[in-house]
């Protein structure tokens, strides 16, 4: 166990120092977040990644229907609402992925027989929608004060036909890509929580197996930033800090 785990830490620190010179695709679009912008939900956040924007509301720990009650942990529910029309199969599939990711970090056992509901409203979709949903859900959960084991972030990569990786692709880049991969990573162990892929790719092109063991995709450190920066205001949660430093 010792031998298997220790090299990862090395790889991680190496990738941290190497992150300076990045390829053209290895950067994220401008992202921003606002928390506590809705009055009715217990926690809310809106997350922007480039022109993609998602609004999230969290209710909980609240009353739960008897049919959905789980006796030893909280019932986690994720509802994803598209910009127009009714939710379809694609939304249901994404809901499932987001729900499983949240379940991995939320400490549901601290609030048994309650429900935690995350409602995500797509405001605009300009690529990397699932990643943006994951980020919005995380920030809303933080705002609601739901106990969590770690923070998580979502990131989408597009694999072009020439084998180059583009992080946080726009809708146009997504359309041209050979494969689209979305990952959720947690902030403590920096490991993969969820991955979903679409299209053709080989293991050699996208070393997902290495990300699963602590190395994160190059360029994503900024999303997991908060735990690396010591004593500095944390870039990932600007509004939280602002609010807390004001009072």
């Amino acid at each position: 166990m010792d031998g298997a785990m220790l090299p990862d830490a090395k790889i991680r620190t190496e990738s941290g120092t190497e992150s300076g010179p990045r390829g053209p695709g290895c950067s994220l679009r401008h992202f921003a977040c606002e928390q506590n912008l809705l009055s009715r939900p217990d926690g809310s956040a809106s997350f922007l990644q480039g022109d993609t924007s998602v609004l999230a509301g969290v209710y909980g720990p609240a009353e739960v229907k008897v049919s959905k009650e789980i006796f030893n942990k909280a019932t986690l529910e994720v509802i994803l609402r598209p910009k127009i029309g009714l939710p379809g199969v694609a939304e249901k599939s994404r809901e499932r992925l987001i729900r499983n990711t949240c379940e991995a970090v939320v400490l549901g056992t601290l609030h048994p027989r309650t429900s935690i509901t995350v409602v995500l409203q797509v405001v605009s979709d300009a690529g990397s929608l699932l990643a943006c949903c994951l980020n919005a859900a995380c920030m809303a959960l933080v705002d609601a004060g739901v106990p969590m084991r770690a923070l998580f972030c979502g990131v989408t990569c597009a694999l072009n036909s020439d084998g180059t990786l583009v992080l946080d692709p726009t809708a146009k880049q997504e359309k041209e890509a050979r494969a689209i991969l979305t990952f959720a990573l947690d902030s403590v162990e920096r490991k993969l929580l969820m991955s979903t892929t679409k299209g053709l790719y080989s293991d050699a092109e996208v070393p997902v197996w290495r990300w699963g063991e602590g190395q994160i995709p190059p360029g994503c450190e900024v999303l997991l930033g908060p735990c690396k920066v010591e004593g500095e205001p944390l870039p990932y949660v600007p509004s939280v800090c602002k609010r807390h430093f004001q009072t």
Binding site: V142, R149, F245
Partner: peptide, 17 residues
């Protein structure tokens, strides 16, 4: 690099994890 002394972060913002 993550574990910090509780005394040094008193009255500062801490995050889950």
């Amino acid at each position: 690099d993550r574990a910090r002394a509780a005394r040094t972060v008193l009255d500062q913002v801490v995050l889950p994890g």
